[in-house]
Design a protein around this nucleic acid. Structure first.
Length: 435
RNA sequence: CGGGGCGUAGCGCAGCCUGGUAGCGCACCUGGUUUGGGUCCAGGGGGUCGGAGGUUCGAAUCCUCUCGCCCCGACCA
């Protein structure tokens, strides 16, 4: 990705007024910040600024999947009906699944998930218990023809999802994989700057017996979650807490919460709003059995491997991050996903100011800091508003007055704190702030 | 899918009730002005009034049908 862009040429169609269709804050801000453009209900184009964020999120998710031993694959968008008929889900999935025919009148569908495809791959190549465990994942577009898409990219029909599928030789090994994925998820969400609670969940259409949903805590969340207050104290280093301990704590989504069965009382029980951004399942041999995927054991007998599947809504996360990180002025990106690290704002439109600004961004570029330079001939108010709206973590402001004294101002978007820094130490100061 | 709302310039809206051939703010273009919080002045371009049919001398406005978008509910990453 380019480290430096100038606003005079960058495609950033910001809006002063909120389009009337957007009611939730992340949707409003994504439209106003020129991140997305709606094509039709639940289907969006990602514009340059939004795409940068999406890719950042995607990359963090990918790195953590790789770290836990996942192997990335890319499966087809279109799947054949036969495979789904074989698994028995073709009729069961309902209208949410978009179905179509090719020119030969062969029945196809736009994949809403990929258990069938991955199991088909597995059964064609993997024959021995020695090859296990295996975990595959992809980050790919899904289409689910939701009854009612809403909230911008938080509930689109077309959405970017990380879906992973695991195969283990037995239950015990499968539960280990499940725990490893739990740890991976906690780490992933922590890197994304989100407070997340893993709640016990219903296994729904996917089936199975062990399942957690991951909810980003945000006041505007769609679902109510109930959880042990210990989660609040884990927040900072949740990835280092023992996974069994976390799984042992009480945490339930609304529909699973039974006050009479809840072991917590009063202060110990926290209630909050959450946005579901991830869901993990262990579902045993449901698909391996029905699709006849088998491995041979040491004793020559064969078994159907234990499977799990693990989803993260990558595009939904972009919305969820905004829900959890914004103020009246606009978005406040966590540094890990910010489309650029620094907004460089040149004021006054003098040659001197622009020359120094050019030098600043070149110096920052050299040390790997990404900068969006507002070199438009707009007044200061417009530039400040734009910078606050798009929410880059740091603003470097240089005006004629500061230049005379050899000072630039650095503003932290999140706290609003401002500091005047001598121009010559600007780069090292920024490097320090960003590490 | 059930209930509700809305489609008029890129965006936000007025006009519709009570028909007479479209207007305001922002954005955009030109010239000037301004430069530490969406500056000010002047001029300008842009609209098959979502679509089709009907009533009428005449329809953004009334009637019928249709398409789309949004909100509330059941489902989901």
């Amino acid at each position: 990705m380019d480290l430096v862009m100038k606003l005079s040429t960058y495609f950033l169609p910001t809006l002063k007024e909120t389009p009337s269709e957007a009611t939730v804050v992340s949707h409003r801000l994504m439209l106003r910040a020129g991140m997305i453009s709606q094509s039709t209900a639940g289907i969006y184009s990602w514009l340059p600024l939004g795409l940068r964020v999406l890719k950042k999120v995607e990359q963090i998710v990918r790195e953590e999947q790789d770290r836990m031993g996942g192997q990335e694959v890319l499966m087809p968008l279109l799947q054949t009906a036969e495979l789904w008929q074989e698994s028995g889900r073709y009729d069961g999935y309902g209208k949410e699944m978009l179905r179509m025919q090719d020119r030969h009148e062969r029945d196809l569908l736009f994949g809403p998930t990929a258990e069938e495809v991955i199991t088909d791959i597995f059964r064609r190549y993997i024959k021995s218990y020695k090859a296990l465990p295996k975990c595959f994942y992809q980050i790919h577009w899904k289409f689910r023809d939701e009854i009612r898409p809403r909230f911008g990219v938080m509930r689109g029909r077309e959405f970017l999802m990380k879906d992973a599928y695991s195969f283990d030789v037995d239950k015990e090994s499968a539960v280990n994989t499940y725990r490893a994925m739990m740890r991976t998820y906690l780490k992933t969400f922590q890197r994304l700057g989100l407070a997340v609670i893993p709640v016990r969940a219903d296994t729904g259409v996917i089936g199975g017996d062990l399942s957690h949903e991951f909810h980003v805590l945000a006041q505007t969340g769609e679902s109510q979650v109930y959880y042990d207050k210990k989660f609040d104290t884990f927040r900072e280093n949740i990835d280092q807490v023992d996974v069994d301990e976390i799984m042992g704590l009480y945490a339930m989504a609304d529909e699973m919460h039974k006050p009479e069965e809840c072991p917590l009382e009063g202060e110990d029980l926290r209630e909050a709003r959450g946005i579901e951004v991830g869901h993990i399942f262990n579902f045993g041999t449901k698909y391996s059995e029905i699709l006849n995927a088998k491995v041979v054991l040491a004793d020559g007998s064969s078994i159907a491997p234990e499977m799990g599947s693990y989803g993260i809504g990558v595009s939904r996360l972009v919305g969820a991050i905004i829900e959890a990180n914004h103020d009246e002025q606009g978005i406040i990106w966590p540094e890990s996903v910010a489309p650029f690290q620094v907004a460089l704002i040149g004021l006054g439109g003098t040659v001197e100011v622009s020359e120094v600004c050019e030098r600043i961004y070149k110096d920052l570029e050299k040390v790997g800091v990404s900068v969006l330079y507002d070199n438009r001939s707009e007044g200061p108010g417009v530039k400040f508003s734009t910078a606050d709206l798009i929410g880059l973590p740091w603003q470097i402001i240089l005006g004629p007055k500061g230049l005379q004294e050899g000072l630039a101002e650095i503003k932290c978007r999140r706290t609003g704190d401002r500091e005047s820094i001598p121009l010559e130490s600007l780069v090292s100061y920024m490097q320090e702030k960003l590490c």
